Computed example of a mutant assay.
Amino acid sequence: MAGVFVLVLCAAILFSGVLAVAMGRVLPALIAAGLASLFASVVYLLLAAPDVAMAEAAIGAGLSTFVFLYALRKTGGGDDGAGGAGRGSDGGRS
């Protein structure tokens, strides 16, 4: 039964990773990447590697997500201009 749960979590890791890459905005992609790391830490815990699970949860899901969120906040909130390609500095109003 635990093997099936591990496989489901591995599928969730893959789905979250693909979702993080396919997202058009930065903040939802960051959240999806954090979820992939959180799912990975649960898999490590189920595979009897609690030390690796704690490190993945603390660094992968926790610290790196926090650092990226902080960087987004400091650089303008993640408005990466997706969908606005080809516009000048005036926002396409000229």
Score class of each variant (00 low, 15 high):
Gly77Lys: 08
Leu45Glu: 02
Gly62Cys: 05
Ala48Met: 07
Ser41Trp: 13
Gly92Gln: 10
Ala12Met: 11
Glu56Val: 06
Leu9Asn: 13
Leu45Cys: 01
Leu35Val: 10
Gly78Ala: 09
Arg87Val: 05
Leu69Met: 07
Met1Lys: 11
Leu69Gly: 05
Ala53Ser: 12
Ala55Met: 08
Thr75Met: 07
Ala12Leu: 14
Leu14Cys: 01
Ser64Val: 09
Val42Ile: 13
Phe68Ser: 04
Val42Gln: 05
Asp90Ser: 10
Leu27Lys: 13
Ser64Arg: 08
Ala32Gln: 14
Glu56Cys: 05
Val6Gln: 14
Phe66Ala: 01
Ala2His: 10
Thr75Asp: 04
Leu27Val: 10
Ala55Trp: 05
Leu9Trp: 14
Ser37Glu: 11
Leu45Trp: 02
Leu7Arg: 01
Ala61Glu: 03
Val52Pro: 00
Ala32Cys: 14
Arg73Leu: 06
Leu38Arg: 04
Ala20Trp: 04
Ala57Asp: 06
Ser89Cys: 12
Gly17Ala: 13
Arg87Tyr: 05
Ala40Lys: 01
Ala61Phe: 02
Val52Tyr: 05
Leu38Asp: 02
Ala61Thr: 10
Ala29Cys: 14
Val42Ser: 00
Met23Ser: 13
Ala49Glu: 11
Leu45Ser: 00
Phe39Lys: 08
Arg87Asp: 09
Gly88Leu: 14
Phe5Leu: 12
Gly81Asn: 01
Val52Ala: 06
Leu35Phe: 10
Asp79Gln: 07
Ala61Leu: 02
Glu56Gly: 00
Ala11Thr: 02
Ile59Leu: 05
Val18Thr: 15
Val4Tyr: 14
Leu27Pro: 06
Leu63Arg: 03
Val52Lys: 03
Ala40His: 00
Gly60Tyr: 07
Tyr44Asp: 03
Thr75Pro: 04
Ala48Ser: 09
Ala22Cys: 09
Ser89Ala: 15
Ala22Asp: 07
Val8Ile: 13
Leu38Cys: 03
Leu72Trp: 05
Gly78Ile: 06
Leu30Tyr: 05
Asp51Asn: 08
Ala58Pro: 03
Met54Gln: 12
Ala36Lys: 11
Phe66Pro: 01
Val43Met: 10
Val42Pro: 02
Gly91Ile: 03
Ala12Asn: 05
Leu47Ala: 13
Ala12Pro: 00
Ala71Cys: 07
Ala20Gly: 15
Ser16Phe: 04
Leu63Lys: 07
Leu38Ala: 11
Ser89Leu: 15
Ile13Pro: 00
Ala33Glu: 15
Ala12Tyr: 03
Ala2Cys: 06
Ser94His: 10
Leu47Thr: 14
Gly91Arg: 08
Ala20Phe: 09
Ser64Tyr: 02
Pro28Asp: 15
Ala33Ile: 12
Ile31His: 15
Val42His: 02
Leu27Phe: 10
Leu35Ile: 11
Gly76Ser: 01
Phe68Val: 04
Ala32Ser: 15
Leu14Ala: 08
Ala11Gln: 03
Gly78Thr: 00
Leu27Gly: 08
Val4Pro: 09
Val21Phe: 15
Ser94Asn: 14
Thr75Ser: 09
Ala57Asn: 00
Met1Asn: 03
Leu14Asn: 07
Ser37Phe: 06
Gly84Glu: 01
Ala40Glu: 05
Val8Arg: 12
Gly3Gln: 14
Gly88Lys: 12
Gly84Ser: 04
Ala85Arg: 12
Ile13Asn: 01
Phe39Gly: 08
Leu45Arg: 07
Ala40Thr: 05
Tyr70Pro: 04
Met23Val: 04
Phe5Gln: 09
Leu14Phe: 06
Thr75Gly: 02
Val67Ser: 00
Leu47Lys: 13
Gly86Arg: 01
Leu46Gln: 02
Asp79Cys: 01
Asp90Ala: 10
Val6Asp: 12
